[in-house]
């Protein structure tokens, strides 16, 4: 009888220690920035699941981007390997905040989205997969407004 009581108290204490221990670790990791999901930018799942440009624009808040000559988009005219297509975006728009790369005819249209801080130049190079010949569209958010640029990339061997 006694032994049983002791053991249940002991179990409770152990459980409590275990929980406080893991909570403490989690708090420490959060402080150190080692729990990415916790403090990072809000994920935009719907935009990454979008299959068409209009779905993606809706998911990004119903935006209507305007063409801008201040965005320089560099991608090959012909990509022999659709598995790695280099894309470079240079935005000269003042206060560039975000750069997103979309491939119009990929199964999901949004490839990547980058949040640009004030400490960063409006420049990014990434490598993307392309299933077939398609327009590559870049959306740039600058000073709260959305702009776009696009270019056609011919893909000889799809890589999606």
């Amino acid at each position: 009888m006694h032994g049983r009581n002791f053991s249940s108290v002991d179990m409770g204490r152990r459980q409590a220690l275990k929980e406080s221990g893991s909570l403490g670790l989690l708090a420490l990791f959060t402080l150190l920035g080692l729990v990415p999901g916790a403090a990072w930018a809000a994920t935009n799942k719907a935009a990454f699941e979008a299959k068409t440009l209009s779905e993606a624009l809706d998911a990004l808040g119903g935006i209507t981007p305007v063409d801008s000559a201040l965005i320089k988009l560099t991608a090959p005219d012909i990509a022999e390997n659709g598995a790695t297509v280099p894309v470079t975006v240079e935005s000269s728009l003042p206060r560039t905040q975000q750069i997103s790369i979309l491939v119009e005819k990929n199964p999901t249209i949004l490839a990547a989205s980058f949040n640009i801080s004030e400490g960063l130049e409006g420049f990014i190079t990434a490598r993307i997969k392309m299933a077939q010949t398609s327009a590559v569209i870049v959306l740039v958010k600058a000073d709260g407004k959305f702009y776009r640029a696009s270019t056609e990339v011919k893909v000889t061997a799809g890589g999606c």
């Binding site: 990072w40 930018a41 994920t43 935009n44 990454f48 598995a83 790695t84 297509v85 470079t88 491939v103 990929n106 199964p107 999901t108 949004l110 490839a111 990547a112 989205s113 980058f114 949040n115 640009i116 801080s117 004030e118 400490g119 960063l120 130049e121 420049f123 990014i124 190079t125 990434a126 490598r127 993307i128 997969k129 392309m130 890589g159 999606c160």
Partner: peptide
Amino acid sequence: HNGKVVLDGEFGTSVSKNPYLVFRIK
């Protein structure tokens, strides 16, 4: 950069294997 976030981002499934990025910190 020295502990201050200068760039963050999200990837979908259309980013190539072994993602490669180039960016410029002021």
